[in-house]
Structure formats: structure tokens, C-alpha cells
């Protein structure tokens, strides 16, 4: 498939709104009893911080392929580490305890897996985690790995602040509370708050939590949080591939089932190939991840902070992004 036009990207944006706004609104109402503090409470904390650099850990395949945790620990990086929920397991298993974990996706059953799911044995069968590179540790021995994650999150939860969207399933909120995390709430900026019947305005009025731009996914939300709330002058992105390595089987991609349903035998043709001149490799991506990529590039161009992509993989490069290796970032800014 060719790269998507703006009109095509808008279709994905509209569909995502249709898919997530109503369920997010319903979850916000269910989460009301747990909403005590908002992310604005972290601004004063951020202003006292000495370091002005942050690291954002996302759950793309490069997080496991490049294994950046030992380098960050060795460098004694002083700034905050912000993990997308999907990267939490990787961080904890490797001794990198994030200061913050961001969660936003309203999916009813999958997201709690990133925190260890106390009810996993009773869930319906779901091969989502087995198929993908998001966290290969969850591929095999699912229940044993889940127990390991439950224990790790319980052990370290008190030291991690949950940057939790009102859109998430209340089970996620309860799991974070059970692990001893402090919850700091926010709303996704779903739509234009000046439009009639705006979800953003309704959810703001319900919760009194600020609405934050998301970029369509958790990793980009974590980057926005570091920029807009922590006021980091520079952020390093890890695991932000928004694409699949050249040798990945299409069966191991996030939207494989939908792509086959839509395109049948020609599903492979529907993926988008992007040559990364820094890596001198061609990675491939699906329409949704391509939308994420374009959204992040748009946001990075508009933000008054420096964004260093230290993923060492993927397709996030362009104006507003400094594509570099983690070692260089750590040497300059630890």
C-alpha cells in the first residue's frame, strides 16, 4: 500500500473516536469513585526537579531487541522514566523502576495484563499477547509470567505513580490501587471541546481532570505527559517503533486479524513500507501505526521541547525528531 493521504488518516482518526469515546465516557463514570487527584498535582513536583530530561519507554519490538535498561541504570540517569503500560513489565523485570506508568486504552480485558491480571485464569482465550512482539515474555508460560508480573508490580507499585486516563476499564484502576500506586487522573482529549456534544467537554465537566492530547496511543500519551506536565526540555524515546522489523511475520502484527479479514490473501500488500535512512533498513507498518507515526511527528513539530528518538529501530524520524542512539543521549544528558 502507498503511504496514506491526509483524508485516509482522517478516516482512521474518526473511526478511533467512534470506537473509544463512548466506552471511555462510560468508564469515566465508573471510575469516578477513584478520581481523587489529577496530573496537574504533579506540576509543582516537576518544578522542583533538577533534571530536565526524561525517558519514555514504549512497548515496540526494539525495547526487547535493543534492551536499553542496563545502559540507563549504568548511566545513573537522573531524570524521570515514564513507561507506557505495555513497557512496564520489561522495565520491572530489568530493574528499571519507572517513576510513572501511563495507561489510556479503554479495552475491557487486555490492558490489565500489563499490570499483572489477578483474574487471568477466568478470562476468555485471547492470543493478542502471544502473537505480538509487544512483550515477548508473555508469549510462553502465560500464567507463570502473569504471576511474575503481579509480584513485580505489587513489589514496586508504591514507588510508581499511575498516570491513569479516565477512559480505562475500572479494573485497571483497582489493580493499580491494589499494588499501592498513587493515581493521577486525566482525560483524553477526544474531540473539539467547542463542538456540540463534545466528549472532551462532557468528561471534563464530569471529572474535573484536564484533557490531554494522546497521539492515538499510550506511548505518545506518555511523551505528551513528559512535555506538557513534567515540562521536560528534552525527552528520549525508547521502543517507539510504530512499525515492525523487516523480518517480522505479518501474523505477528497487531492488526493481522483485521487485515486478513479485510484484504484476505492480499493482506501483505496492505502494509506500508518505510525506508529508514538512519538504519538503512525498510520497516513495515500497518495503517493504524502509520497514523500514530504521523500524529507523533505533527506533535513533535509543535512542541517546544527536543525529542530524541533513541529507539534504534522503527520509522519515527523527520522534522522535530532527532534520531540518535541511546548511548549518545545518556552521555550528554545523564
Amino acid at each position: 500500500m502507498k503511504r496514506l493521504t491526509k483524508a485516509q488518516l482522517n478516516i482512521i482518526a474518526r473511526q478511533t473516536l467512534a470506537k473509544t469515546a463512548e466506552v471511555g465516557w462510560e468508564n469515566a463514570q465508573k471510575n469516578l469513585p477513584y478520581i481523587k487527584k489529577t496530573i496537574l498535582g504533579l506540576r509543582s513536583e516537576a518544578s522542583k526537579r533538577v533534571a530536565d530530561s526524561a525517558i519514555i519507554a514504549s512497548a515496540g519490538p526494539s525495547l526487547h531487541r535493543r534492551h536499553p535498561a542496563p545502559a540507563i541504570l549504568a548511566a545513573k540517569f537522573k531524570g524521570p522514566v515514564v513507561a507506557a503500560d505495555g513497557a512496564l513489565g520489561y522495565c520491572l523485570r530489568n530493574g528499571l523502576i519507572p517513576d510513572y506508568v501511563v495507561t489510556v486504552d479503554p479495552h475491557p480485558a487486555r490492558i490489565i495484563r500489563w499490570f499483572g491480571d489477578p483474574a487471568l485464569a477466568h478470562r476468555e482465550a485471547d492470543d493478542y499477547f502471544q502473537r505480538q512482539d509487544l512483550d515477548p515474555a508473555l508469549h510462553k508460560e502465560g500464567e507463570a509470567r502473569n504471576q511474575e508480573l503481579l509480584d513485580l508490580v505489587n513489589k514496586h507499585g508504591r514507588g510508581i505513580k499511575a498516570i491513569i486516563s479516565t477512559s480505562v476499564n475500572p479494573e485497571v484502576a483497582l489493580r493499580c490501587l491494589e499494588a499501592g500506586m498513587e493515581l493521577y487522573w486525566w482525560n483524553p482529549l477526544y474531540d473539539d471541546y467547542d463542538a456540540a456534544n463534545s466528549y472532551s467537554r462532557r468528561v471534563y465537566q464530569l471529572t474535573k481532570a484536564p484533557c490531554m492530547v494522546t497521539g492515538g496511543n499510550c506511548g505518545t500519551s506518555a511523551w505528551v505527559f513528559a512535555h506538557a506536565v513534567l515540562h521536560s526540555k528534552r525527552t528520549a524515546l525508547l521502543g517507539m517503533d510504530l512499525s515492525y522489523p523487516p523480518n517480522t511475520s505479518i501474523q505477528n502484527t497487531q492488526y493481522y486479524k483485521e487485515m486478513v479479514e479485510l484484504f484476505g490473501d492480499r493482506a501483505e500488500e496492505a502494509f506500508i513500507r518505510v525506508y529508514n535512512p538512519y538504519l538503512k533498513e525498510t520497516w513495515y507498518t500497518d495503517p493504524t501505526y502509520y497514523w500514530y507515526r504521523q500524529s507523533l511527528l505533527d506533535l513533535a513539530r509543535q512542541a517546544d521541547c527536543e525529542t530524541y528518538n533513541c529507539t534504534e529501530g522503527g520509522i519515527v524520524f523527520g522534522k522535530g525528531i532527532k534520531f540518535t542512539i541511546l548511548k549518545d543521549f545518556l552521555e550528554r544528558f545523564s
Binding site: L4, Q8, I11, I12, A13, R14, Q15, T16, L17, A18, K19, T20, G24, L40, V104, D105, P106, H107, S165, S167, P188, L189, Y190, D191, D192, Y193, Y199, S200, Y204, K208, P210, C211, M212, V213, T214, G215, G216, N217, C218, S221, V224, H227, A228, V229, Y255, E258, M259, E261, L262, F263, A270, P287, T288, W291, Y292, S295, D298, L299, Q302, A303
Partner: peptide
């Protein structure tokens, strides 16, 4: 067909940016 196909591939959460506002506080 292309439009309907793309419509099935929605992301994790809605996204919009309005006048460089990263955080809307009412």
C-alpha cells in the same frame, strides 16, 4: 472499499489537536 477498510483499523484512543493545546484545563 478503501474507506471502509481503514475505518476498521481504529487506534487505542481518540486523538485530536486543537491550536497547539496539549493540555486543556477547561
Amino acid at each position: 472499499f478503501e474507506q471502509e477498510s481503514l475505518a476498521k483499523l481504529g487506534g487505542s484512543i481518540a486523538f485530536i489537536m486543537k491550536s497547539k493545546t496539549f493540555l486543556w484545563e477547561g
